[in-house]
C-alpha cells in the first residue's frame, strides 16, 4: 500500500491577519506557521493509523512550496511519514498546485491520495477534486471514516442530510475532515527520526496560472456593541425586529 498525503503550510489559527504593500501581500511578521490542521489532524494521522495496521504501507508526503515549508514538512515526518517531496513552487493558483501534485502522483503510482478538507488560509477546497480530473480517479470529498480492505476502500462522507457510506476501488482520492482521526503530538523518537528521513526537492512542471490574487481586504469593523440590560429582553427582541430586521 502506497499513500500520498498532501500537506500545506498555513498561518497558525490564532494569527492576526493583516496585509502590506497596498493590501497585495500577507503581513508575515509575527506569524507562526503550522501544518494545515485538516492535513495534519485528519489526513496524515489517518495514513499513520493505516500504516500501524499494515506496516508494509509506505507514506509519502507532498508539499508545493518554497524552502520555508521545510520546517513543517519535518514536523509532518516526525509525526510519521516515511519520506517527503517538496515541489519547489510558490504558486497560489490551485490549478498550478494540483498540476504539480498530479505529476508526483503519476510517478509514484499511489493507491491512496489524501488531502485535508481545505486549507485554513485560502479555503479553496480544490486540490482533491482537481486531482480527480487530472488523474482520472474517483474522489470522495469530506470524508470522516476510511477503512481499507485489500484494494477496496470503505469511506464515510458527510452529505446534506447526514452520512453516506461508499465503497471504491483503489486508487482513490479522499479529502478528510473531523472524525477521521485524532490529533497527535510528535514524540522525541519521531522528531529524531525525522531529521534523517528523505526530503526530496523536485522542480515544478510547466503550468500556466488560471487565476491571480489582485488584492486583499479586511472585513469592516463592527461599529460597537449595544448593551442591553438582562432584565430587558423585550427591548432586545424589539431591536432585532425593528433595527436589525433579522427576526
Amino acid at each position: 500500500m502506497k499513500i500520498l498525503v498532501c500537506i500545506s503550510k498555513t498561518p497558525d489559527t490564532t494569527a492576526k491577519i493583516a496585509f502590506i504593500e497596498g493590501n497585495t501581500k500577507l503581513d508575515e511578521s509575527g506569524i507562526q506557521w503550522i501544518i494545515n490542521p485538516y492535513d495534519e489532524w485528519y489526513a496524515l494521522v489517518r495514513a499513520i493509523e493505516l500504516k500501524e495496521k499494515d506496516p508494509a504501507t509506505l507514506i509519502h508526503l507532498v508539499t508545493v512550496g518554497g524552502v520555508d515549508t521545510e520546517p513543517i514538512i519535518r514536523k509532518a515526518l516526525a509525526l510519521g511519514g516515511d519520506e517527503a517531496i517538496r515541489i519547489d513552487s510558490t504558486s497560489h493558483d490551485s490549478f498550478t498546485i494540483a498540476n504539480q501534485i498530479a505529476a508526483v502522483a503519476k510517478e509514484g503510482a499511489y493507491d491512496l491520495i489524501l488531502t485535508g478538507k481545505e486549507t485554513i488560509d485560502y479555503n479553496s477546497a480544490c486540490i482533491g477534486s482537481m486531482l480527480s480530473a487530472l488523474l482520472d480517479l474517483p474522489f470522495i470529498s469530506l470524508a470522516d471514516h476510511l477503512e481499507l480492505n485489500e484494494k477496496v476502500a470503505t469511506v464515510k462522507r458527510e452529505i446534506e442530510s447526514g452520512e453516506e457510506t461508499c465503497e471504491a476501488n483503489l486508487p482513490l482520492i479522499v479529502s478528510c475532515q473531523k472524525g477521521m482521526a485524532e490529533q497527535r503530538i510528535p514524540n522525541m523518537r519521531g522528531i529524531m527520526a525525522a531529521r534523517t528521513k528523505p526530503l526530496k526537492v523536485v522542480a515544478p512542471v510547466a503550468s500556466a496560472a488560471t487565476t491571480s490574487i489582485s488584492a486583499f481586504d479586511l472585513p469592516p469593523a463592527k461599529s460597537g456593541v449595544k448593551l442591553i440590560d438582562p432584565e430587558q429582553m423585550d427591548e432586545l427582541v424589539k431591536l432585532l425586529k425593528e433595527e436589525a430586521k433579522v427576526i
Binding site: I120, D121, Y122, S212, F216, D217
Partner: peptide, 10 residues
C-alpha cells in the same frame, strides 16, 4: 480567505 478573517479579490 483565512477562514473568514479576510477577503481576496481573485
Amino acid at each position: 480567505v483565512f477562514s473568514g478573517k479576510a477577503f481576496a479579490n481573485i
